[in-house]
Amino acid sequence: MTVVIATQLRPDRLDHLTAMYESLTRQSVPWEAVIALDGADRTRLPTPLAGDSRVCILALPRQVGAACARNLALGCVRTEFVNWADDDDEFTDDAMAVRLRTLEMTGLGWCAGYSEDLHPDGSASLWRCPTPPGRHEAGDVWTYWTRPEDTIPIGPTTILARTDLVRAAPMGGLVQGEDYMAAIGVTCLAPSLRATLSGRETSDAAGVV
């Protein structure tokens, strides 16, 4: 499986990106990563990522935004399954193994889980998306997003999906929320299982950043 990460290599996020990479190295299943540098200077890439043959670097000559950078990175994915991630995310040690095993055993198109917000003091709080655990048919997930002001129905970065489904539901060019709409697109294309804890995202007192 492949993790796709778009980043501008902002100085305040480099430590988070390194932590993301370290969480990948603790996974028990084979993985690859595609890092889309959104107009960023490649020399700022943390050394551990730059030296790992499992990490493909796609250096874009100018900033195109997260949505376009992620879409372009999909062209470098060689594996059957793919997962989006932000440059301040981390995966729990069994996240990939649990979700990959689920997809291989069931033949479903995607699976997803809960996530945690990781706070500056080291504590974490579980975020439970409105979509309940269990099997969901194609098109079910969006029904849990009944009003625009409601929280999103599922965490986009917790979704592990077949690569062909992700390519069929590319991210739109929105300023914000492009990953939410891509998640809705993927979940409308194939049935799924939503059950596992997938990872953590750095947050501050005001919420996820």
Rank of each mutant, 00 (worst) to 15 (best):
residue 1 M to D: 03
residue 1 M to R: 08
residue 1 M to A: 14
residue 2 T to D: 05
residue 2 T to E: 01
residue 3 V to W: 14
residue 6 A to E: 01
residue 9 L to T: 04
residue 10 R to L: 15
residue 14 L to R: 15
residue 15 D to Y: 03
residue 17 L to Y: 05
residue 17 L to W: 05
residue 17 L to K: 07
residue 20 M to R: 00
residue 21 Y to N: 03
residue 24 L to S: 03
residue 26 R to M: 07
residue 35 I to M: 11
residue 41 D to G: 02
residue 43 T to V: 08
residue 52 D to N: 06
residue 53 S to N: 10
residue 55 V to A: 11
residue 59 A to Q: 14
residue 62 R to H: 12
residue 66 A to F: 08
residue 70 R to I: 13
residue 74 L to F: 13
residue 75 G to P: 03
residue 75 G to F: 07
residue 76 C to S: 13
residue 77 V to L: 06
residue 78 R to Q: 13
residue 91 F to L: 15
residue 93 D to C: 08
residue 96 M to V: 01
residue 97 A to Y: 04
residue 99 R to Y: 01
residue 100 L to Q: 13
residue 110 W to G: 01
residue 116 E to P: 00
residue 119 H to Y: 15
residue 125 S to T: 15
residue 125 S to N: 06
residue 126 L to P: 00
residue 130 P to Q: 12
residue 132 P to R: 00
residue 132 P to N: 01
residue 133 P to D: 06
residue 135 R to L: 02
residue 142 W to R: 14
residue 143 T to Y: 09
residue 147 R to V: 03
residue 149 E to P: 01
residue 151 T to I: 14
residue 151 T to W: 12
residue 155 G to Y: 08
residue 155 G to N: 06
residue 157 T to S: 04
residue 157 T to C: 14
residue 162 R to M: 12
residue 163 T to Y: 09
residue 163 T to M: 04
residue 165 L to E: 07
residue 168 A to Q: 12
residue 170 P to L: 07
residue 170 P to W: 12
residue 172 G to Q: 13
residue 172 G to T: 10
residue 174 L to K: 03
residue 174 L to A: 11
residue 174 L to S: 06
residue 174 L to G: 05
residue 176 Q to S: 10
residue 180 Y to W: 15
residue 185 G to Y: 13
residue 185 G to R: 10
residue 185 G to P: 09
residue 186 V to N: 07
residue 186 V to I: 15
residue 189 L to D: 09
residue 191 P to M: 02
residue 192 S to M: 00
residue 193 L to E: 02
residue 198 S to K: 00
residue 198 S to N: 01
residue 199 G to Q: 06
residue 201 E to F: 00
residue 202 T to R: 15
residue 206 A to D: 13
residue 207 G to V: 04
residue 207 G to K: 11
residue 208 V to F: 10
residue 208 V to R: 15
